[in-house]
Computed example of a mutant assay.
Amino acid sequence: MPGTVIVTDSTASLSPEVAAAHGIVVVPLQVVIGAQVHDEGSDGATPEMVAGALRDFVPVSTSRPAPARLLEIYEELAAGGAESIVSIHLSGEMSGTFESAQLAAARASVPVIPVDSRQVSAATGFAALAAAEVAAAGGSAEEAAEAARRRAAAAHSYFYVDTLEYLRRGGRIGAAAALLGGALSVKPLLEIREGHVASLERVRTAGRALQRLEDLAVAAAQERPVDVCVAHLASPERAAQLADRLRQRLADQLEGRDIWCTELGAVLGAHVGPGMVAAAVSPRE
């Protein structure tokens, strides 16, 4: 185990294989479906479970990990030899997970640096990977945390939703904005801006929305080396189409790396609903 261990949460879209390969510890958030509480993950709440519940109008909500649970994980890592920990989480504007990390860090027996990525999904995951690379190379916890902050700040996260209703239910947008979108029968394009979900554009068709996601991702990449993730909830055909187009248009910037194409996790999926397609572009240092 390296001197500095990287911790993130299950919304970061890191597969178990990728997390294990980089020594990243992933803490699950919780999903409440009806009256049942599940940890997010393949052995608990899955995207398929959430999409089905939303379609059937079963109540779905999400919950952060308790500070005591994060402290337990920090102490387990310390007992295993960790000298310091960098704990990188989704935007504190949208979840209390970062606050839980701060509270747990104050009680940990080893130094813990909580990092608010001010991002979601793969943009947070790429920040965690940047920190893990610094730690593996012998960098300090402060250097790893700063690498995560820089990578997250440079990232762009764009997404399309079939309806704003699920974001309204979760309190991520106002009722007026959701009502307007439904009344106009538009397809909303959104982005993560300063840690919040922000409206970007409105288009009339799903096809046009996918084209704009493609163009926005290409523009965000510029001429820099980048990592890219395409995510979806119950919309694999649309996601595959977008990923294929981006592989072609960003071949030089990808430098031989593949685009991640994955289904969004249950926690974030609960807030965007079936049909969502997203593109995250993360410039490499």
Rank of each mutant, 00 (worst) to 15 (best):
V277T: 15
H156T: 11
A270Y: 04
D252R: 15
I73W: 02
A178I: 13
I6M: 00
E17A: 15
G174L: 09
A270C: 08
L233V: 06
L200H: 09
T163K: 08
P2G: 05
R69M: 12
S117Q: 01
S121N: 09
L213Y: 05
R69E: 15
V25P: 10
E255M: 11
R284Y: 03
T8I: 02
I85P: 02
E201M: 05
G174R: 02
S95N: 06
V120T: 10
G3Q: 13
R284C: 03
M49S: 08
L14R: 08
R150C: 04
L200G: 01
Q222N: 09
L216M: 10
G80C: 07
G207C: 06
Q102P: 03
S282M: 07
E263L: 06
S140K: 09
R118V: 01
E255A: 15
V226D: 05
T262Q: 13
L180V: 15
S140D: 09
S95L: 08
V218N: 05
G92N: 10
E191N: 01
A251F: 10
A79G: 15
L14Y: 05
S15Q: 07
L71Y: 03
E72S: 10
S91G: 09
A104Y: 06
I259K: 08
I259H: 08
L103W: 13
M94L: 15
A175W: 09
E75V: 05
V281R: 05
G41K: 03
G80E: 12
A104I: 07
V112L: 08
G80N: 12
Q211H: 12
V230W: 00
A21Y: 08
A136K: 15
V267H: 12
V134D: 01
R245S: 14
R247F: 03
P47C: 10
I73A: 09
E194H: 10
S140C: 08
A135R: 00
Q119G: 00
A12D: 09
V31P: 00
L190N: 01
G138E: 01
A68C: 06
L70F: 01
H89K: 06
G44K: 01
R212S: 11
G275K: 14
S117L: 06
Q248E: 15
Q253C: 11
A132T: 05
A132F: 08
E194L: 05
A206C: 02
A21N: 10
L90V: 11
V110Q: 12
R245N: 10
L184Q: 14
Y160D: 07
V115C: 09
D162R: 11
S87Y: 02
Q36W: 02
V31E: 03
V31T: 02
A128L: 05
G138Q: 01
T163H: 11
E48Q: 15
R245V: 07
A239I: 01
A137W: 06
V26C: 02
M276A: 15
G265P: 04
P65L: 13
V203G: 00
A176L: 14
Y158G: 00
I192W: 00
A206K: 13
E255H: 05
V120R: 04
A279G: 04
M94Q: 12
